[in-house]
């Protein structure tokens, strides 16, 4: 366990060295929030309910989504880099689990993001945007659990995509297409209650909905308590499904790997 904590720490330190990139991330997040608020403001000005609950619900939804996106950032090219550079061979010789290493590295990346990016963005969200508080303290707890599970769902899906590095030389395209699917089908872009029925249903039945729309719906108090439990259970099921697929792929990959040079 200690080893993996060290890996996470190492990832944080690496990120601190290249922190300029994350300043860019903060600005991106804030601009995205700003653009979206301008659009929703324009929409609600016509319906003259600008200060109304509807408007604040929408804004809270959008801002929460962007805040979550800003910390759900992972080192997408780690495995590809390891495979291409051949350093995967030394990793496999070590008495540690490679997948455990990848996971702890990404946890480190997330912790760094929470410190450097979430904090300023959250301050902006609370003081300038005035997002709604969580529905109740209990709901806040459920929300926190659900966010964590949402992260794990995204991580598990990502892991499956990353592991294709063992079969395909350059996975930029896979990652980008996956990202597009996640953005559109997870309800990250606009509140799910504005979606047409077919898309709404798609968000419910695909694993992507478990990433953003479930935690946010919980936060806004839109799910009755029993449904919160089923949704959280669903998140856990998706994590298990993709972890199993990931393990299987990793199993095949280990047999397949041929490293150049010696």
């Amino acid at each position: 366990m200690r080893t993996y904590v060290e890996f996470a720490k190492k990832a944080i330190q690496n990120n601190i060295v290249y922190r300029v990139n994350s300043y860019a991330g903060i600005i991106n997040t804030i601009v995205m929030i700003f653009v979206n608020i301008a659009i929703w403001r324009a929409i609600y000005e016509e319906e003259a309910t600008l200060e109304g609950l509807q408007f604040r619900l929408v804004i809270t939804y959008i801002v929460l989504s962007f805040l979550m996106q800003s910390i759900f950032v992972m080192d997408e090219y780690l495995i590809q880099y390891k495979v291409r550079s051949g350093s995967i061979s030394t990793d496999m010789l070590r008495p540690i689990s490679f997948l455990g290493y990848v996971f702890s590295h990404n946890i480190g990346v997330m912790l760094f993001r929470i410190i450097i990016q979430l904090t300023p963005a959250l301050l902006v969200a609370i003081f300038f945007v005035k997002i709604l508080p969580p529905f109740s303290p209990l709901i806040a707890l459920y929300f926190a659990i659900s966010v964590l599970l949402g992260y794990l769902v995204l991580y598990s899906i990502n892991l499956v995509v990353w592991l294709t590095s063992f079969w395909y030389f350059e996975i930029f395209s896979f990652i980008t297409i996956k990202d597009a699917a996640v953005m559109i089908l997870s309800g990250a872009l606009l509140p799910i209650w504005f979606m047409p029925n077919w898309l709404y249903n798609l968000v419910q039945i695909t694993p992507f909905g478990s990433i953003y729309s479930v935690p946010i719906s919980i936060y806004l108090g839109q799910l009755p308590e029993t449904e919160i439990y089923t949704k959280i259970l669903l998140q856990i099921i998706w994590i298990i499904v993709f972890q199993v697929i990931g393990r299987l792929l990793w199993h095949c990959a280990q047999k397949r790997i041929v490293v150049q040079g010696g």
Binding site: F172, S173, F174, T176, I177, A180, M183, I184, F194, P196
Partner: peptide, 20 residues
Amino acid sequence: LISVAIFCREMISIVTMYLI
């Protein structure tokens, strides 16, 4: 495949606009 990926990435914002 890269072209397809870029197409998908750019479609994200189009889809948002379309849905709104």
